[in-house]
Design a protein around this nucleic acid. Sequence first.
DNA 1: GAGTGGTCTAGACCACTCC
DNA 2: GAGTGGTCTAGACCACTCT
Lengths: 242, 242
Amino acid sequence: MYRQIADALKAAIDAGQYGPGDRLPGENPLAAEHGVAVMTARQALRTLAAEGVAESRKGAGFFVLAPFTPIRRRGVARLAREQWSSGASIFSADDSRDLTVESRVLGPVTPPDEIADVLQLDADGRAFGRYRRHIVEDRPVLVSTSYLPLALVEGTAMAEADPGPGGIYARLADLGFAPARFREEIQVRMPSADERAALNLSGGTPVIKVCRTAYTDEGRVVEVNEMTLDSQAYVLEYDFDA
Amino acid sequence: MYRQIADALKAAIDAGQYGPGDRLPGENPLAAEHGVAVMTARQALRTLAAEGVAESRKGAGFFVLAPFTPIRRRGVARLAREQWSSGASIFSADDSRDLTVESRVLGPVTPPDEIADVLQLDADGRAFGRYRRHIVEDRPVLVSTSYLPLALVEGTAMAEADPGPGGIYARLADLGFAPARFREEIQVRMPSADERAALNLSGGTPVIKVCRTAYTDEGRVVEVNEMTLDSQAYVLEYDFDA
DNA sequence: GAGTGGTCTAGACCACTCC
DNA sequence: GAGTGGTCTAGACCACTCT
């Protein structure tokens, strides 16, 4: 029964009867219209939210979500040496759409244990942190925290709000610590409450966790970047040779 | 209120009071114990299922799920030429655990449009299909459908149930169509009903869709493999140079 | 046959949003 | 102030599982 109502609403949306941002009928009208209990109408609306078709706003109603063309994130090409050594940002390889990056310097922080291990931190266990938030078409699509060895960063442009053309990797290269190899680890799960808030996620949208480690030629770890992506907003692409 | 009950159950599970496979208290006992309505106790159990802590079995109850160490899928290394040219299976690079692969030859099939485009199929739009299902510790973790150009496959070992040591890629190499480059595209979403059944997924577990395209040196597409992964069962790893 | 989860009914209160 | 979703109550029937 609730599936029928949900499907009927979905069909109406696909038919253009409700456009992006439009409010769907509330529980009471829906229940009356279909001759069911309010709780049943609720479940239909909730189902649409879980499927990512609509979102609920407390005290306001259920609203049709705008379709979003996923960002194609070219995992290998975006991190090629030519990309950052030419002064371009990494993200500019991803998508032709405008991207806003909010960047906030955290300064010395204590990273999670797994990351502290990879970074080979000394006794005090602190690293230089930077928080970023990517926004495309007014939609937050990624948040990340980047960790670098404190000793490498202090007193350099990397500690500035804007590290300059080519970003952190170009600055590392200036100091003789150019990243030569990367490892990206991808995991998927449902978001925590914090992540749901930071990415403005609604309903049953999973997040993609990407953890990137940057190594120099000699195998020294110079950065660990832990990213949280809105899974609906991204297609990850990796190109490589056999 | 339902959060409190859910958290209490979660704590009891973490404390070892309920082990993997154990049945949790039903709605009625739970409601009585906490002095709430049955519907509220239900919501608590449902929350645990959505979080992937427990699963519901119709007519039987809610059961604690076994923790599962994710498979580390080494995206680049597993597809290296040395891997398949040495006669090893691709999967053997992933994990030390035993992996069962069910393989079923589908024969000539009509692939989805996107895949037909990539494969550059001729007028009839048919390709050689093979279905696979990966099982680790009795748990299905991946299903896939692989498509190859019909002309390349017919009358060769690739059309057999067992294509021999090194698998399809080794056979393609025998014929002078060795894969030289790969592209993997990753997307994440909630599973369809079919996918939920095939992977025995419970509650709010997302799936990872990996679509791999294999190219020869000359850029000819020789395989498209569309995979569906249980997101809780995998960590995807990609290593590459700057 | 007893117990279970899946679904449905018919109410209710609250905090919140919008007008 | 009216309407909304979030949550809760107190019942009910059904198909299913397990013993």
